[in-house]
Amino acid sequence: MTILVLAEHDNTALSETTARTLACAGQIGASIHILVAGKDCGAVAEEAATLSGVEKILLADDPLYQHALAEPLAELILVLAPSYDAILAPATANGKNVLPRVAAKRDVPQISDIVAVETPEIFLRPIYAGNALQRVEAKGFQKIITVRASAFKPVAKANAAAPIESILPARDPRLSVFQNEVLSQSERPELTAARIVVSGGRGVGSKENFALIERIADRLGAGVGASRAAVDAGFVPNDYQVGQTGKIVAPELYIAVGISGAIQHLAGMKDSKLVVAINKDENAPIFAIADYGVVGDLFEVLPEFERALDNAGKPA
């Protein structure tokens, strides 16, 4: 099987979701190429070339691909598509945006957000916000798949770098124009790659109070997440949202503060290794999936938690 994996990147660095998608691809077939499409993204291609299990990098370096607009990017993938048995992308905003467009043009169904590969033709995917798992078989047609990156461990670095082949841009369909973007600036680890995530919900109460969450996060080197209610209330930007319709995370430690635990939120974090809940309502559903729960007012528990971290850090 020959597989094309679409790289996720920001023209400067490769996202870890690519290495995770590659791990998934490795379970489907052995001959894997990565497509790096972007502008001035040579460094990304070089980084991708060092990932284990990659045969070759295809580099489409052109202004057309700077913002990963779905219309031109789909055209590019469609030029390459006939040579592959499977096309994979991480189920990121970019992957979800472009891949169904490719699938429709290829006249094949897309298999969305897979979390396991049972055989090269049988996949597991969550439905109903992760309350059920569907086992699907894709036989007799090209496999077009988005991958839930958090469900796969990233592949390691290879000993030798794979070759990089430059390819020409495809036709510009001239349907869409990039206007602008407002990206959250943060020194913190990216939510989907963070080893620890601290998330705040409506209970945090305000944008100002969110500093409490951020302080704990920085103390732990964690990423910061939020519930939909916290985002809707304007405490934090939209890209902090964890859940069925936000980001899916599976860190080693997830700390939910002032979050009730609606199924739509659980959908985005219940595969975390260890879950901690801090909530003043002892009946909050979040406690049903938490490994450790502290019932209490977050405005008392968080400062206490911070002090305890400081004390624990001191030599006896």
Binding site: P109, A132, F305, L309
Partner: peptide, 27 residues
């Protein structure tokens, strides 16, 4: 349909956790 749904399963349940008294216990 071209994708064949073989079956639908229950996801694995998380085990029930522990309630802790203080933040220090948590640490």
């Amino acid at each position: 349909p071209r994708l064949k749904i073989l079956d639908v399963r229950e996801p694995s349940k998380r085990r029930t956790g522990e309630r802790l008294g203080t933040a220090a216990d948590l640490v």
